[in-house]
Amino acid sequence: MYSSSSQFDGNAAFSGGGFMPSQATQGTDPSLGFSKNRDAQSLLPLTVKQIYDAIQSSDDKANLIVDGVDVNNVTLIGRVCNKAGRVTDVTFVLDDGTGKIECNKWFQEAADSNEAESILDGMYARLHGHLKNFQGKRTLNVFYFRPVTDFNEVASHFIDCIHVHLYNSRIRSSVPNQQHVMNSTPITPTMGYQAKVIPPTNQFSDQHAIGQKGTENMVLDFLHLPANRSRNEGVRRDLIAQHLEISLDKLMLAIKNLIDEGAVYETIADHYKSIING
């Protein structure tokens, strides 16, 4: 397991050689060990509230843990406030609506101090930074700062946070069908799109959408036939309808859903192709 990763990952190779953690963790859950190792270097999208709620790990390193994953580097989006520029660094507070966190950015080069002038109170910014946890105080050491220009990024970031939370908490839950919910809020059936996030586990969605889902799968299966895969221009819609023996309206509804999901795209007028056709 570690011999293959040693070619490109010095850290993993070193720790593997010294302590053989692969053997130690093998007994419990190999996939867990792998994800932990890899996630240690990842950039986690988080809300300030998640950082506030993060558990302090029990080892000496004073690491924080969110959804069972060690947090080092994080990406946040929020409004900048209380900016204070100094000669060697700039400090500000980032308010992402769920909470506020103190941030600082050190200047390495002269160009950095010019960049600091572009940081203004009230602006929305995307940050990448290293989370520091010192004497119970959590601050962010920023190494990347970019003003947000397309504000869809704000909603997108929080959806990202939800997605990563779901991904990390589901990997760690031993029963795949059981959803890991951090708070006490019950899962309300009002959220129809819940079905899209976790298609295999949600029974409600399958019940009311079984007819449509069936059509979509039939369309996908048809597009995946080798003869159809090889066509650069995709398959004409009449042909799909004719082959599946369904009405054009029903077909177009299925195709629209597949396009929305990103499974299928239109090549030229009225010709469709699956994304895994290559």
């Binding site: 509230k49 709620d53 609506g97 769920t98 869809n152 997108s156 951090m182 809020t185 309300t188 959220m191």
Partner: peptide, 21 residues
């Protein structure tokens, strides 16, 4: 601005994933 995404985010942030917000 994609109002639909924002609208769904509002529902998620007040529903199942309230703990994150």
């Amino acid at each position: 601005f994609d109002t639909n995404s924002f609208n769904q985010l509002c529902q998620l942030a007040n529903g199942e994933f309230k703990g994150l917000f």
